[in-house]
Nucleic acid binder design. Structure first.
Lengths: 399, 399
DNA sequence: CGATATTGTTCGCCCATCGAACTAATCCCG
DNA sequence: CGGGATTAGTTCGATGGGCGAACAATATCG
């Protein structure tokens, strides 16, 4: 039960009921497609006449199309409805420190095209390049009416000004990405922290079952990000800062973190941490001169090849991942935890270590499902698309 | 934006709009009372005619009464509306390991009567005693129509069966409190973990301003409980287990906790922990024989009297409270953190230590407002009442 | 061919909001 | 003292949307 926000609420008009039921029907079609009007009536509890009326508007708005005719043991044959995959492209953009990916996707989060560009450290040049690519993309797919642009990025976005804040890896200062892109493309732009976007993507298109209403996504890369879905919705917190569990202290008097704190989780369980673990292991052996730190990709390759030190470093990283995951399960009790990042490529090695660490603390902890995402499925990019999709499929804002 | 739960949603009918607007108006009256219909129209954006119609039903249902007539520099004088303080008692019950409190409150969370009974370890005898007290209470206030019973307890309630689980301090096993009480009193019963209830109470009747949508309540007693309000609603998590931050490890290889884990937060920052800190300080001095542990009340009294060891123990407890609070701020980014428990009686001593601990980690952390509750205001009991109140004042469940 | 079953549409009813017109009450000013 | 200005609250027809019964369309089966 939510408290009504008396500073920001919406009264109901006569159209509110239609808005609510329209969204329910649209979601039911998304879930059960192809599906007949009569089935929608049974699934929703709405009258067949009401479903027909809603279906008519959905079809006229090109959200839905009538498809094949079904077959039943007796009675009139139903005409199936399904989402219009052709309509409504969504542009998803995944900004990472070195590279940025742009994709065009259909309503059901299927990628239609995808391309790459380097992430320019000069922010205005970057925006110009982005606009150029988006224009080209839309010209290449004139049949698509684009519903909006979703952007996932490694940082935080100020809720009020929509400016980018806290994105140390990108080197842009208080950049307003939303307005210039909206002006140039005439499309609405949604910005969101990458971990939050991943959590949304898993909520909407992950295979975790309908009953999952509490989900935590952990993005592991140079740092660690956490996106929380609780009660079926993204938790953004005050100023949009929720989810910085990567900077919770897990080792009192640990090494200093650039954030100012000491012993932060991400100092032990991120990709960079694994590289450091590796270096420590190596220099422990060859006392003295430090070798140059390997990239995390190198580390994965070395481990794959059976390098004991690399495996040790990865397992050390996994153990510390377990430490933080234990905290998240204990405190948030999610139905599922999803891990995103290169580390999932060594999941068979990582997962047992995490599990062992959880069991060491409490057998109850390891009841929680912990799954990895396939990096090929582009979780961040899917998240960017979900930002736009949920505006149409999410529950209406009411009261 | 919430994802619609396709396993458990509600379609809109023609009455849905009325339900929504009714709740909005009721909340506006609660906030602005006494208030005229015209003002409600301005606050809500609804037409005056609509407000009048809603007000009429609210008055006929005795939620609201017409009061005095106002005065304006010109024009017809408005008739004020306000909540009907006489109607609608809510029974709140606060169960603690040793004592249980029962109270009757009005709509606006004002206590009308309050009484105590020992918490019987025999659960069926306890339920019988409770029923007896409730009956007596209702008989003593025949003018009140009782809206329901809210119960705050030190444990967890299974969402599906409504049975009490994980209440080691109470010694009852899988007790079903809801059904016997409902059958005996014919009132609906709401059960909730005490920390969650406190968080709700602070959301609904705390003085934190309307803009607070993210709030964390920390109950400090024998253990530590955390109640989370995120996006303006209580987070219960999978199986209602969210909020067990008291059992997050803050000291790797710390002492073993009854929960099975090691170094749990509540081993360092609870009342029992403070008593242990004190004992350690004492036995450090008089090496050898341990004295008997003082109660937390004793400790507070000793500190009040200037006992250095007691002060040291309290400050040690406060420092560790800061450790956990840092975690909560970092991860959840609440607008406010509320501390509940006996420890707030020494708040002038505790707060600076917490603040210092936060600042040590990061100055940004101490931006978050951290407030204590007055134990006299009965936060747990107010929470119990809020459980029932929010059913009438909360946002309608839609879609 | 007729009985039965199922899908999808049509139409009148009901409920709720809107908005304009109206009544009521009050103050100000000439 | 009386009319204009102003504000509160009510009345009433228009509009939108869901309900539900009746109906049309289309199938199977004996």
């Amino acid at each position: 039960m939510r408290k009504i926000d008396l500073d920001n609420f919406q009264v109901a008009t006569s159209e509110t009921a239609r808005d609510i039921n329209r969204r329910i029907v649209l979601n039911l079609i998304r879930k059960h497609q192809p599906v007949s009007r009569a089935d929608l009536s049974r699934h929703s509890g709405l009258q067949r006449s009401t479903v027909s009326s809603i279906a008519e508007t959905l079809i006229s708005e090109r959200w839905v199309t009538e498809g094949a005719v079904g077959h039943l043991p007796r009675g009139r044959r139903p005409t199936f409805l399904h989402l219009n995959g052709e309509r409504a492209g969504i542009i998803g953009i995944n900004i990472r420190p070195s590279r940025t990916t742009i994709a065009l996707a259909s309503l059901d989060s299927r990628f239609i095209s995808q391309e790459n560009l380097p992430t320019d450290r000069n922010s205005s040049r970057f925006v110009a390049g982005l606009v150029e690519r988006i224009r080209r993309l839309m010209k290449a797919h004139p049949e698509m009416s684009c519903e909006g642009i979703g952007i996932a990025l490694p940082g935080r976005v100020d809720i009020t000004t929509n400016k980018l804040i806290f994105a140390p890896n990108l080197g842009w200062k208080a950049l307003d990405l939303k307005r210039p892109l909206e002006n140039a493309t005439k499309l609405s732009v949604e910005l969101e922290n990458a971990a939050n976007a991943c959590a949304l993507a898993e909520l909407w298109s992950g295979r975790h079952g309908e009953s999952v209403r509490n989900l935590v996504a952990i993005t592991v890369s140079e740092g660690i990000g956490v996106g929380m879905i609780l009660n079926g919705q993204l938790v953004r917190g005050s100023m949009g800062m929720a989810g910085e569990f990567g900077h919770v202290t897990i080792q009192e008097n640990g090494p200093e973190c650039p954030c100012g704190n000491r012993g932060c989780w991400e100092l032990y369980a991120s990709n960079s941490a694994a590289a450091r673990h590796y270096q420590e292991a190596v220099s422990r052996k060859r006392k003295g001169r430090n070798s140059t730190a390997p990239s995390f990709d190198d580390l994965l390759r070395l481990a794959e090849q059976g390098d004991a030190k690399a495996i040790e470093a990865l397992e050390r990283m996994a153990k510390f991942l377990g430490t933080g995951i234990a905290m998240l399960i204990t405190g948030l009790a999610p139905d599922v935890i999803v891990i995103v990042g290169e580390v999932t490529r060594a999941w068979e090695r990582i997962e047992p270590v995490i599990r062992k660490e959880l069991e060491k603390r409490s057998p109850a902890l390891s009841q929680t499902r912990i799954v990895s995402t396939d990096p090929e499925s582009q979780p961040r990019l899917r998240g960017a698309i979900t930002l736009v999709m949920q505006k149409h499929f999410g529950a209406p804002s009411v009261a």
